[in-house]
Nucleic acid binder design. Structure first.
Lengths: 180, 180, 180, 180
DNA sequence: AATGAATGAGAGTTCATTCAT
DNA sequence: AATGAATGAACTCTCATTCAT
C-alpha cells in the first residue's frame, strides 16, 4: 500500500477544519443577522455557496452545528475574561471582570441570547461536556474573588456563594440592559 | 339604513375580546407545556377547536400573537409582585420581593425564557409600548426600595441605580439557577 | 349557530371520499407503471395536479396510503372470488376458484407483488385489522371445500389443512408463473 | 513497451473477483440483516471499509449489484437442494426436497422476498440469463420426480407439469407461511 | 487502485397563510 | 363568524453518482 506523505494528510486535515470553521462562522453570522429561526442548513449552505448535502460531510446533523456554536459562545466569553489577567491589583481586576462581562454581553449581545435560546435545540447532545466550559469561567471568577479576599479587599465568605452572587449580579445587569 | 343599537356592538366587542383572550391563553399554555417551537397557529386552533383560519379573524398574524404572549409574561410577573403589598414592614417586603421574583422564575421557568426567546419574533412589532409593562414592575420595585430608605433600612442612594442593581441581582440569580 | 343543510355536508363528504379515492388510484397507477420505489407523495401529487401538501389533508402520512392500497389489493381479490358463487356444482366451483385465483394473479400481476412488497413499509400500521380481509378470502375457500366434501367430491379432511394446501398450490402456481 | 507477464494479470483478475465477491457478500448480509431499503452503496462501502466510490470500480452501478444478489439467492437455493443427493430412496428424497424447500424459505425468509422485491430494480438488466439458474433448480426437481416414477412411487405423468405443480405447492406453502 | 469532496435530485413532512363559500 | 381546501415555501436529511487527485 502506498502511504501518503504526512504533508498531504495534514493539508487535508487543515482543510477539513477550515471548512468546519467556515460552516460555524456562517451559522453564527446567520444567527446574529437573521435570528435563530433563520439558521437552517440550507441557508448556511447557500451562504458558503455549497450544496446543503455538503454540510453533512462536516457535521452529522443540524444539532451538532448548533451545539458547536453554543460552545463557541462560552469559549469566546472565557477568552475575553482571560484578558484581565494582566491587571495585578485583584480588586481592580475583579471590577474589570464585572464590567468586562457586561460589555461582552452588550457588544456581542446575540451571543448572550444564544446560550439561552440554544438550550432547547441543543440540549439533546452532550449535556455534560457542555458545562465544562461554563464551569471554567466560573472557576476563574472564584480565583479572582479568592485573591481579593486574600488581599483584604473582601471579608472572608464562602467562595462559591460569593462567585455565584457576583456572576448573578453581572449576568443580571447584562441581561437587563440587553432587554432595554 | 339600519344602525345597530349599542348593545349589539358591545356584545360583539366583548365576544371578540373573549376570543382573543382564549387564543392567547391557549398559545401561552402551549408555550409552557410544549415549548416555543410547538407554538404554531395550527396547534392553537386545534386546542380551542377552531379552524386555523379562524385565528386570523382575531390576530393579523402569528407575530401579533407572540407579541401578546410576551406581554402576558410581564403582566403575570407584575401581578405576582403585587401580592407582597400586604407585608407592612418595608424591609421584609423588599426581601420578599426578591425571593418572590426568584421563585417566580424557577416555578414558571419557561416564562423567563419567553422574554428572551420571544424577542426575536416579536421585535418586529410595537417595541415601545412593550416596556410600559416592564417599567411598571420597575416602578413598583423603586417604591419598595424608597420606603426602605425612608424607614431607615437602607442608606440614601439613587433610587434608579439601587432598583436596577436589585433587579439585576435577583434576575441574575434566577437565570443562573434556571441554567443549572 | 347555523346548521348546514344535509345536502352540503353530504356533498363535502362525497368529495372528500372522491379525493381519497383519486389519491389511491393514482398511487396504484404509479405503482403499476413505475414500480414501488416511484410511489412517492410528490409523484402522486404531481399526477393529480395538486400540491404535495394537499395529500396530507386526506392521508396522515405515506404509510396510510400504502396501507390503503394494500387493503385494496385484498379487497379486489375477494370481490373477484365472489363471482364464482353462481356456479352451483361445488367441484366445478372449486376448480374455478383455483383458475380464477391464478388468472387474477396473472392479470393484475402487480397486485400480487404489492401484497408482498408492501409488507415491509406497511407493516407499521394496523397489523391486526389487515388480515381480516385476507382471512375472509380464506374462509370463503374453506366453505367451498367443505361443500365439495359434503357433495362427495373430496374425502373428509381437516378443512383448514385442505384450504391451506389448496391456497398454497394456487398461490404457488401463480407466483411461479409471474416470475417467468 | 513492457507487456505484463501472465502471472500479474491473473493475480489482478483474481483480486478483482475477490473484491466483487466481498461486495456481494456484504450487500447480501445487509439485505438479510436490515432489509431491502437499507441496501445502499454507502452502507456496503462502510461495512467493507472502503469508500463508496471504490464500489464503482467493481460494479457499474447499484442495479448491477442488486442483480448479482438476486442471482445469489437462486444459487443458494440450488446449493441447498443438492444436499439431498445423499438420500438414495427417490421417494424419500423427493419428500425431503419439499420439506427442505420450505425450511429454506422459512429460515432465510428474506431470500424469498428478495426474488420478488428485486425484480423491480433488477429487471432492467439481463433478463434472459437470469433464469438459467432458476431452471437449474427446476431440472433438478424434474430428475428427482423422474426417478420416483421409475421406481414406481409415482404414476407416469408429464414431467414438466408434475415438477411445476410440486414446486408450486412447496413454494406456495412457503410463501403463505412467511406471510402469516 | 482508491478516495475525499462534492453535488443534484429528491425524499417525507410541516408551516403560515389565503380565499371562496 | 367561521371554515375547508389548498398551497408555496421551507424544512432536515439521504442517496447514487462523479471526478480530480
Amino acid at each position: 500500500m502506498f502511504v501518503k506523505p504526512m504533508g498531504i494528510l495534514e493539508r487535508k486535515d487543515r482543510e477539513k477544519k477550515k471548512m468546519r470553521g467556515l460552516i460555524l462562522k456562517t451559522a453564527m453570522k446567520l444567527f446574529l443577522e437573521e435570528g435563530f429561526e433563520n439558521v437552517t442548513v440550507r441557508r448556511i449552505a447557500e451562504r458558503i455557496e455549497y450544496s446543503p448535502a455538503a454540510i453533512y460531510l462536516y457535521y452529522k446533523d443540524k444539532d451538532e452545528i448548533l451545539y458547536a456554536i453554543h460552545e463557541i459562545g462560552f469559549e469566546k466569553l472565557y477568552k475575553q475574561q482571560q484578558t484581565i489577567l494582566s491587571i495585578k491589583n485583584p480588586w481592580k481586576r475583579l471590577k474589570k471582570h464585572g464590567s468586562n462581562y457586561i460589555n461582552f454581553a452588550l457588544e456581542n449581545h446575540e451571543y448572550y441570547d444564544l446560550m439561552f435560546i440554544m438550550r432547547g435545540p441543543a440540549k439533546k447532545i452532550k449535556e455534560k461536556e457542555e458545562w465544562e466550559i461554563g464551569l471554567r469561567s466560573f472557576e476563574f471568577l472564584k480565583k479572582n474573588i479568592n485573591e481579593c479576599i486574600k488581599a483584604g479587599y473582601l471579608s472572608k465568605v464562602n467562595l462559591d456563594v460569593a462567585a455565584f452572587a457576583f456572576w448573578s449580579l453581572t449576568h443580571g445587569i447584562a441581561s437587563r440592559l440587553i432587554l432595554c
